[in-house]
Write a protein that binds this DNA or RNA. Structure first.
Length: 555
RNA sequence: GCGCCCGUAGCGCAAUCGGAUAGCGCGUUGGCCUCCGAAGCCAAAGGUUGCGAGUUCGAAUCUCGCCGGGCGUACCA
């Protein structure tokens, strides 16, 4: 990556300046490059002189000049200038930039890949919604964020495993089973109340009807406990299948669906509890088993096994994380949770530490809530009350691509207001079409060139020097840097802004530079520009692919 | 009460480490299709970055105090 080459070059120049006595021998801070907001300030700039000024007791401008004078000539750097109050501005050579077009074409689908991760094994666990009802709009946000992040980490050189943690044990499943039983009986005309803690959503009525359609009244003759259990499992499977279907439609797939229940069946839970006990973090009190997190600086202790003998959700999570880190050996684990799980974060980190794993290896991304409105009316989303807008409805309404783009365009820590009344109208104005239009436009240029039998293999990219051409190359070269940033900060929302930027730069180029010309004298330039356009298609398509969106050839 | 997140143009949101004149989309106003897609381009208007102090050569960004919104603070998940 050119940015890294420049970073190294600058650091060397600073050391050379010290060796030559132009700079005092103070410790050098890490060299950081940025893209100046104004293009006159170069392709990259460093504020190193400003940071060095105090320790070196020198005027920052003098430092900038000293370092700039020690930069060796290279085939990519056109010039380095000291700029007030003490920046070093770096400009790339047009000829070098033009040559990158061929480099991008050579890389093709791999363009954007970097080796940041060095094959480190990372798990991204996301969605993991309780399988007690359909996915709603809010879940879509975590699904899109997680799947995009997994793609970004993959292209950044990590070995990524995507996982859905299936909460198929515990209270909520029990309640789901009992609700389903009651709805099943009702569907068959029996008098039966929905449990007080049950799921009152209409989808449970539909689910019961579906099951009746399949098995009729077979379960009525069974003892209630047995019927509830069997019926529940049937219903659970249907719900999970529906969740899986919705996610697939959204472009979200998993390498593994991990069953919470299996943690108890395989003895993983006992094992991890044993580790904690051994290390002295387990205590019995008031008839319950506690994790003594206060000993690790937490505000309070947490119950692992209730006094009635049933394990808590936290208990499962202890075993689950032990499984992730110790049994399966992931070097890093990224959990994407809703903001309502915030209270869970620090105790999970404490548990991971207690298990003997560096808590830094666990990263939790909290996705802020999606507040639903219909016009001015706030819709309270709750599976309990059953009022919700499903993800499926949203996808029907605005389409998958717009859906993904919309969720992705906001950073995880900003709350989102989703107005359904405006959803459809907004989808037509969504920047997603702006980006995809650029791709379709490129495709049609390339088609036209093919129809006119233009051989762009012959194109000589050194003919490229128009400012709009150079701007487009520069923008394309940002993709690997963007991947790096997104992978390091775990913030894939930057992709949406980059995609728009790239599209804008392309549209501007298109307006200013004729690609396919009717005049024979333009042939060499046409061929060169076709290469540029083909490279732009690669960059744009790869960006869209990272976001899980389609790259239409026409629209 | 305490803890975490957020507050940026009319609306929705960006701003990679503290960097140079804070950007993008929608909306508003005006212009641009006689060789490649106007779902486009160009231009204009629109900001005391919630308020007030502090640190710094430099603050949307860091610190402190207020104000407003969200979430958490269960033997729920």
């Amino acid at each position: 990556m050119i940015k890294h080459d420049l970073t190294v070059l600058l650091a060397e120049a600073a050391r050379r300046a010290q060796a030559q006595g132009k700079l005092p021998h103070t410790a050098l801070p890490e060299v950081l490059l940025e893209h100046p907001p104004r293009s006159e300030h170069g392709d990259y700039a460093s504020s190193l002189p400003l940071k060095l000024s105090r320790a070196a007791r020198m005027n920052p401008m003098a430092i900038a000049e000293a370092i700039a004078s020690c930069l060796p000539p290279t085939d990519f750097l056109a010039r380095a200038e000291a700029a007030p109050p003490g920046f070093i501005n770096l400009n790339l050579k047009d000829q070098w930039l033009a040559k990158q077009v061929e480099d991008i074409l050579d890389q093709g689908d791999n363009y954007g890949s970097i080796s940041l991760g060095h094959g480190e094994r990372v798990q991204v666990e996301f969605v993991s919604v309780n399988p007690t009802g359909p996915l709603h709009v809010g879940h879509g946000r975590g699904a899109v964020l997680g799947s995009t992040l997994a793609r970004v980490l993959g292209i950044a050189g990590y070995e990524v495993q995507k996982e859905y943690y299936l909460n198929d044990a515990g209270n909520q499943i029990d309640s789901f089973y009992r609700t389903l039983y009651s709805r099943y009986c009702q569907a068959l005309g029996q008098k039966m109340e929905v449990p007080a803690d049950g799921y009152v959503g209409a989808y449970m009525v539909d689910l019961a009807r579906e099951i009746v359609a399949e098995v009729a009244d077979r379960f009525l003759s069974l003892p209630q406990v047995e019927a509830t259990q069997e019926l529940g499992q049937m219903g659970l499977k249907r719900i999970v299948d529906a969740i899986r279907e919705d996610l697939e439609r959204l472009g979200v797939t998993f390498d593994q669906w991990f069953s919470e229940n299996s943690l108890y069946e395989t003895g993983q839970f006992k094992e991890s509890l044993g580790i904690l006990r051994e290390k002295g973090f387990v205590e019995e009190r008031d008839g319950a088993i506690w994790f003594t997190s206060t000993a690790l600086g937490e505000d309070k202790d947490n119950v692992i096994i209730r006094s009635n003998g049933s394990p808590t959700y936290f208990a499962s999570d202890i075993a689950y994380h032990s499984n992730k880190f110790i049994s399966r050996g992931f070097q890093r684990v990224i959990n994407i949770w809703g903001a309502d799980h915030m209270g869970h974060v620090s105790r999970m980190k404490a548990v991971v530490g207690a298990l003997g794993v560096d808590p830094e290896r666990l990263r939790v991304i909290l996705v802020q809530m999606v507040a639903l409105r219909r016009g001015k009316a706030v819709i309270k989303v709750s599976k309990r009350t059953g009022e919700m807008i499903t993800l499926r409805e949203l996808m029907d309404e605005v389409g998958v691509d717009a859906c993904r783009f919309f969720f992705l365009a906001r950073s995880a820590d900003s709350q989102m207001d989703f107005d359904l009344a405006l959803a459809k109208r907004h989808s037509a104005e969504n920047p997603v079409y702006y980006v995809q239009y650029a791709h379709a436009r490129i495709a049609s240029i390339l088609t036209l060139a093919r129809e006119r039998s233009l051989d762009c293999e012959q194109g000589d990219v050194s003919l490229l020097n128009h400012p709009a051409e150079m701007a487009l190359v520069r923008k394309m070269l940002l993709l690997p840097e963007l991947v790096e940033t997104a992978a390091l900060t775990l913030e894939p929302h930057h992709l949406t802004y980059y995609a728009q930027d790239l599209a804008t730069t392309f549209h501007a180029f298109y307006k200013q530079c004729r690609v396919v010309s009717r005049y024979p004298r333009d042939l060499p330039l046409s061929q060169a520009r076709l290469k540029l356009v083909a490279a732009a298609k690669v960059a744009l398509a790869n960006t869209l692919k990272l976001m899980g969106m389609t790259s239409p050839e026409r629209m």
